[in-house]
């Protein structure tokens, strides 16, 4: 039954367009255009363009980026005008200027010396952010270069592994504390103490990544084309590791800032006249109950700095991974 109806349909088609009416003019010769087949219609891909597109896609990222920009601008511009000095005790006898709660006049309030907390926080943030940025830049640059060479060369690998085993078994905080004690207080001394051994962790991490990439076939192909090792590192391996490196930076930036805060809290690290968020937090911690704003506002700013840096770093790391570009 089914077949019969199907067949009758086929005959119907024949009746709609009778074969007698189909002439040769109804047909045209279609040629195969091989050039046309090779064309790619998708818009041109650019790596950094796709990274930017992916990065700015999320509203949270844009908000965090703005927040970070505001904090950075405040930290680097406001202290130029406020002329804040940590050791200034000019207002100490002016009882009206002491222990003011946050108000229109004193946005973040004042402390026992009559100094504005608003000025103190931005001056402190400037030091803390500078330490974090400089220390992680030094760590990453040394770490990535050493790690790349470490991962490529089997001879260096043997030597470096021994050095790594020795250094990595000592807690890094202990090394930093001992070094900053022995070199004395100071901004650059603290940075030296922080970066002295931290790069080896990054280098080890990079070594593993480079070793994974090293034996990939496109590197073998480059070698058969006579490409020198240096170019293989810079053109073949490191571009693949951009997102890995960005992730590492995004983790190390906040961690260096918290190292500084912790060390200043303990009283080692920076000189006595340098304001920093860590020093503010340790200085005001006795007021946690009596004048809580003195303690909590620096903590809040610190939290905002580290969280925004961390989230931006993570988003940038995600965006720089080309697997997310599709």
């Amino acid at each position: 039954m089914q077949e019969k109806t199907n067949q009758s349909k086929i005959y119907e088609i024949d009746t709609i367009v009778p074969i007698a009416n189909v002439s040769e003019d109804d047909f045209a010769v279609v040629s195969l255009n091989s050039k046309e087949n090779e064309k790619i219609d998708t818009p041109k891909y650019s790596y950094w363009g796709s990274v930017a597109k992916k990065f700015f896609f999320s509203k949270i990222t844009i908000f965090m980026l703005l927040l970070m920009l505001v904090i950075f601008l405040m930290a680097f511009i406001q202290p130029l005008f406020s002329g804040y000095n940590l050791e200034s005790v000019g207002n100490i006898n002016d009882f009206k200027a002491r222990y003011n709660w946050p108000s229109a006049k004193y946005w973040f309030g004042t402390d026992a010396n009559g100094n504005s907390l608003f000025d103190a926080i931005w001056a402190g943030a400037r030091t803390s952010i500078s330490i974090g940025v400089i220390a992680s830049l030094i760590t990453e640059i040394i770490g990535v270069i050493v790690g790349a060479v470490w991962g490529i060369s089997k001879k260096i690998d043997r030597l470096m592994l021994e050095i790594y085993n020795v250094i990595a078994n000592v807690p890094s905080l202990l090394i930093i504390i001992v070094l900053s004690y022995s070199f004395g207080n100071g901004f650059w001394n603290l940075i030296f103490a922080m970066t002295c051994t931290s790069w080896i962790g990054t280098a080890y991490f990079m070594r593993v990544q480079v070793m994974i990439m090293r034996e990939r076939e496109y590197n073998v192909a480059s070698r058969t084309l006579g490409t020198p090792t240096k170019r293989i590192i810079f053109r073949n391996i490191l571009p693949y590791l951009t997102s890995v490196i960005v992730t590492d930076v995004s983790m190390s930036l906040p961690s260096f800032i918290s190292y500084e805060v912790f060390l200043s809290f303990l009283g080692v690290g920076l000189s006595q006249n340098v304001p920093s968020l860590g020093r503010l937090i340790s200085q005001y911690s006795p007021y946690m109950t009596s004048y809580p704003y003195l303690f909590w506002l620096p903590v809040l700013v610190l939290a905002l700095i580290t969280i925004s840096l961390y989230i931006i770093g993570q988003r940038l790391a995600d965006a720089s991974d080309p697997r997310t570009h599709l």
């Binding site: 496109y218 073998v220 192909a221 480059s222 053109r235 080309p322």
Partner: peptide
């Protein structure tokens, strides 16, 4: 796909 440098 494995023997070409995807970032170049």
């Amino acid at each position: 796909s494995a023997s070409l440098n995807e970032r170049a």
